[in-house]
Design a protein around this nucleic acid. Structure first.
Lengths: 346, 346
DNA sequence: TTGTAGGCGTTATCAC
DNA sequence: GTGATAACGCCTACAA
């Protein structure tokens, strides 16, 4: 039996309404009574019961961010951006992972906390019927990150994956001079991977480059997995004059490592491009040519949209599209270009 | 006005208590009425109001994890471990960062969500009076990660930093043959850095190695910062026969990169050790000799302890100490040892 | 097996 | 300025 407002009222010899007024900064409280109440609060270490408060106010000032996983630089940045923005808007952010042992009900379960929240931003990276279903019946304001759900209108904030991936691919077939490109993606059901793969195919087609089904791999976005894959193929890729487009920086880093260990020079023997421009991109030797995805901004914008909707549930649906940006470093043949720019050594 | 239990009761033509019974799986409900109620629930897409529910039940089945920051591999692993364990124990986990623009009240503020939670695990990495104060008056079950707070007894789970750091330092002065060691730590107020620095000094003393105040740097645990620092000092360090003990892997990676770029060979010209054994440790060339900190386990154990305490607030205080483990890779002279093991080439 | 009624701790609307 | 008192939505004796 923790202390309640009644205890404070008794101790301060006032009614609970007065205590409530003091707490909620309602100015119309006499200086002296206010002082009495405040001292009683301190003395009892009283904290208003948030359940009761939420029951009356119908809000908790807490918003949620549900991500497929909390692991890795990519999500960390989103969280950071969202957290900052949420605080600025007067909300506290809690984050939760949708992942679970079995993942069929995972999103469902993760979201079951919703009821204590004023709203949720959900990042959808695997499109399943279940998610559409859950969201369609979702009783709370929500925005969707990085994915479009059919069936119900909702605010959303997406990255223009296609655009970024096309820019990267054109860089590979153009300046970097690739003649055959290996695509190393995440799961085939992952929305980002799908978009990047489409761009890959589009540019291959428009450049008249070969499209072999066997040049496309679906991994899990992890460094280790890509490293292991690359260890087996890297020599063959190099001697076939390939170039690798990895769907995130971690996998690209794994591939670069495998190549180096096989005695290959990146980019001379094998060019490797990443995606996202997370910190790893600057940690490989050579640093990665990649596509910068504005992760923190995505998180921040999501909060912006969410809080707007909480404030005004009737506000028309909004969609924000963020533009990624090609970042040319050295893993795809800047060296080649530089050589071309300079007079050859005598 | 979202749908409440009354709406369901009306639609199903029963009383609210029956609805409540159905929801709470109280067996004593007739098959047919139960079916009626369930269909009404579905039809209305009814979700019990969590505030009202929490008010009665005095619990939310949600526990919190408050970390200094959510950024980086280290915290990600803790979260992952905690999340999994919490779910197994029937709780949902929400995580929150204590960081803020100004950080004086940040922990306070972050924790203000507490009231909706059944308990909190707090990671304390900067010891300030304020934290001790807040925690002393904390009205909820809590456990402390990786730090000991005076004043109030509490469950805690700590890493035996000292032990791990001593093991690493002995490796450096022993097999790796260091004669002078540079320490690159996090903030001087960070508890981990403090412990690691103590170990550094202890081993230096017991080995009769020089202790120069100028050999100790306090950075911020970030790759970039360490990289920049190293770029300026790395040649001097190398020619002085130094070896670097970085207080985390990210900084070690930054130093390795700076060394490589300066044309130095790691470990031959400069040995560099990290700490934590995060994924970066295997992503540098050469891979880092480091100390494995059981991060996921720390998160999991924290949840274990927390949930035990929630279940039994009277249970005696418990402290768990996790042992880190030296991981010898190649950044500190395995190569040297290997050379010594083999006959010199004719 | 089901319904009635009281209470959980707040805030809000009234009177005084 | 302050104090009763009615909600808020739910759970749970106790009664029927």
């Amino acid at each position: 039996m923790p202390t309640s407002i009644v205890d404070v009222a008794k101790l301060a010899k006032v009614s609970i309404s007065t205590v409530s007024r003091v707490i909620n900064r309602s100015d119309l409280v006499n200086q002296r009574t206010r002082a009495r109440v405040e001292s009683a609060i301190k003395q009892l270490n009283y904290q208003p019961n948030a359940f009761a408060r939420g029951l009356m106010l119908r809000r908790s000032d807490i918003v949620g961010l549900v991500l497929p996983d909390l692991h890795g630089e990519f999500y960390s940045e989103i969280i950071r951006g969202a957290n900052l923005k949420a605080r600025h808007l007067g909300y506290n952010l809690v984050v939760s992972s949708a992942r679970d042992g079995d993942d069929s009900h995972s999103l469902l379960r993760a979201i079951q906390q919703r009821a204590l929240l004023d709203g949720v931003a959900v990042m959808v990276s695997e499109l399943t019927d279940r998610i559409a279903e859950v969201l369609a019946a979702f009783p709370l304001p929500y925005v969707v990150l990085d994915g479009e759900i059919d069936g119900t209108p909702h605010d959303s904030i997406v990255i223009d994956q296609r655009h970024g991936a096309v820019a990267l691919m054109r860089h590979l077939v153009g300046p970097a001079g690739a003649k055959r490109i290996i695509f190393v993606g995440g799961l085939a059901t992952n929305v980002d991977t799908i978009a990047r793969l489409e761009a890959y195919r589009q540019v291959l087609a428009e450049s008249g480059l070969p499209q072999e089904a066997s040049d496309v791999y679906h991994l899990d976005y992890e460094y280790e997995t890509a490293y292991r894959l690359a260890r087996e193929h890297v020599r063959a890729w190099a001697s076939a004059g390939c170039c690798v487009f990895a769907a995130n920086d971690e996998m690209a880093a794994g591939i670069v490592a495998a190549a180096s260990e096989a005695g290959l020079n990146v980019p001379r023997d094998l060019a490797v491009a990443g995606f996202d421009d997370t910190r790893v991109a600057r940690m490989t030797r050579p640093p990665l040519t990649t596509v910068r995805v504005p992760m923190a901004k995505m998180g921040a914008q999501a909060m912006e949209l969410l809080c707007q909707r909480i404030a005004d549930p009737q506000r028309p649906r909004m969609q924000i599209s963020l533009q990624p940006e090609l970042v040319v470093r050295e893993s795809c043949g800047t060296a080649l270009r530089r050589a071309a720019d300079q007079p050859a050594p005598a």
